[in-house]
Design a protein around this nucleic acid. Structure first.
Lengths: 233, 233
DNA sequence: CGAACTGTTGAAGTTCTTCAACCGGTGTGG
DNA sequence: CCACACCGGTTGAAGAACTTCAACAGTTCG
C-alpha cells in the first residue's frame, strides 16, 4: 500500500484489494518486484498464447479483454478499469488478449512470485477466491445476455452495468462515457457494429438514451432498467 | 475419503477433489455433517433465489444449471456430472437453479461449515481456487460460443466438449449419450429447439454425426473438430 | 385408449447480418 | 496548404440465419 501510493498518482489495485492483510515485510517484498508500465491506446498488454509472465494491476485507463478465432471473429470478454487485475491465469499461457483502449498505466508483478505470495497467505487467498467467484457469477449473467437477450436488451444491460462500474469515476452524472469503439461494444454483445449503431439510434428515438459526444446520457432510467432486466414489456 | 467411500457406491467428489489434504480428524468432522440425497428426474436441487443452505457434491446423475428470466426465457449455464460441486456460492442466496435431468444422487454439507472449513485450510482453498478459475476460463470459452459461433459450430462444440467430460463414463466409445432434452441443449447454446433439431439433422446429412437413440455418434471426428474450433472451413 | 410430451419437419416471418454508400474528422504527403 | 486516404460511425437495401407458428409422428403414462 505504502509503496504503491508513494510512486504513482492512482493507488495500485492489487495493494488495496488483495494485500491489505500482509505484513509490512511481505508488502515490501512484493513491492520490490513491482514494475510500472504505460500503454498507448491500441497497445497490447498481453496476447492470447503469450507466456503468462506477469500479473497486471490497472491503475489508470481502460483495457479490453478478448478472445480471437482463427478467422478473425472476436469476442470481448470484458473491459478492465482501474483497480482490476489482469493476467491472473493459472495456466502457463494467456487464454485472453488484453489491449489498452485509452492511454493506460498498470503496475505488474512476476506471475510466479505473485502466485506464490497469494498461495501462501490464507487471507489473500480468500480475497482472491472472492474476486474470482464474483467474476464467475457475472460471467453467468453475461451468458444469459449473450444467449437470450435481444439487441435492445443487450445494449441497455451493457450501458447500465458499464455505468455502475464507472460510477466511481463519473460520479452520479447521468452521462455515461464510452471510451470503447462500436466494434468493441459489438464484439462484447455478440452483435455487429451496424446493429449497435442502429440500436443506439432506435433507443434515442424512443427516448431511452441521448447520444452525446464520447458517450450517452440515460434519459429514461426506468425503461432502460426494464430492458436490461428483460422484464416482459 | 474413507467415510464417503464406505457409505455409497460412487465416491463423493468433494472428498476426492477438495479434501484430500485434510487430517483424519477434519475429514471426520465434515463427514459427520454429510447428508446424502436423491433426486428424481426434473426434481430441483435448489432454485434461483433460495437461501443457499447447503453445498452439493454430485455422485451420480446429471444436473442442469440455469438462470431464468421473469418472462420465462432460460439460459442453461452448464450441466453437472458426478464429481462436480454445486451451490458453492458466496452470496446468501442462489443465483442459479439446479435441477436433476436423470435420477441423481448427491451428498451435501451445510454451506457455512463447508465455507469455514475451506476458508481455514490453505491447501483446500488453493484447490478451490483452481476449480473456480478453471470454471471461469471455460465460461470465457462459452461467451465466445454464445456470441460468435453459428448454430452448427455451437452444436459441434457442445457435442465435443460434452463427450470429453463424459469420457470417464462412456470410455472411448464413439457414441455420445445425451441425457438432456433438445430444449436443454437449445437453452445451453442460445438457440431454439427447432434449430437444434434441424442442425442435428443437417449435421447427420453431411455425415458429421449419426443420430442414435439416446444420443449421437460422431462420425467425422475431423470435421466436427473443425466446426467446434471455428476454423475457417 | 387418449392425453401429454418430446422431437422432427415445413412454411412464413423477424431479427440481425451483409453489402454498400456516405459523412465528418484526422492525419499525411505531394 | 490542400487533396486524398483512412478511420469510425451512421444509414439504407438486400440477404441470411434463426425464430415462430403449425402440423405431425413416436413414446410414455395415467
Amino acid at each position: 500500500m505504502r509503496g504503491c501510493a508513494e510512486r504513482q498518482a492512482a493507488p495500485c489495485g492489487v495493494c488495496t484489494q488483495l494485500f491489505g492483510s500482509l505484513t509490512l515485510e511481505e508488502r515490501g517484498a512484493i513491492d520490490r518486484m513491482r514494475r510500472q508500465s504505460s500503454f498507448a491506446a491500441k497497445e497490447l498488454v498481453f496476447a492470447q498464447g503469450d507466456v503468462a509472465a506477469r500479473v497486471f494491476s490497472l491503475s489508470q485507463g481502460v483495457v479490453r479483454i478478448y478472445k480471437l478465432l482463427p478467422d478473425g471473429r472476436r469476442q470481448v470478454v470484458g473491459f478492465a478499469l482501474p483497480g482490476d487485475i489482469l493476467g491472473l491465469t493459472l495456466s502457463e499461457t494467456h487464454a485472453l488478449t488484453a489491449e489498452a483502449i485509452e492511454p493506460t498505466v498498470a503496475c505488474s508483478f512476476p506471475r510466479a512470485a505473485f502466485r506464490r505470495l497469494v498461495d501462501g497467505n490464507l487471507a489473500v487467498l480468500r480475497r482472491m477466491n472472492l474476486l474470482v467467484s464474483q467474476e464467475l457469477a457475472s460471467a453467468h449473467d453475461r451468458m444469459m445476455i449473450l444467449g437470450r437477450y435481444t439487441a435492445e436488451e443487450k445494449m441497455a444491460a451493457f450501458l447500465l452495468s458499464w455505468r455502475a462500474r464507472r460510477r466511481a469515476r463519473d460520479g452520479g452524472a447521468k452521462m455515461v462515457a464510452l471510451p470503447m469503439s462500436r466494434r468493441d461494444i459489438a464484439d462484447y454483445l455478440g452483435l455487429t457494429i451496424e446493429t449497435v449503431s442502429r440500436t443506439f439510434t432506435r433507443l434515442e428515438r424512443v427516448g431511452v438514451i441521448e447520444i452525446v459526444p464520447g458517450g450517452v446520457r440515460i434519459a429514461d432510467e426506468k425503461r432502460a432498467l426494464g430492458l436490461a432486466s428483460a422484464s416482459p414489456a
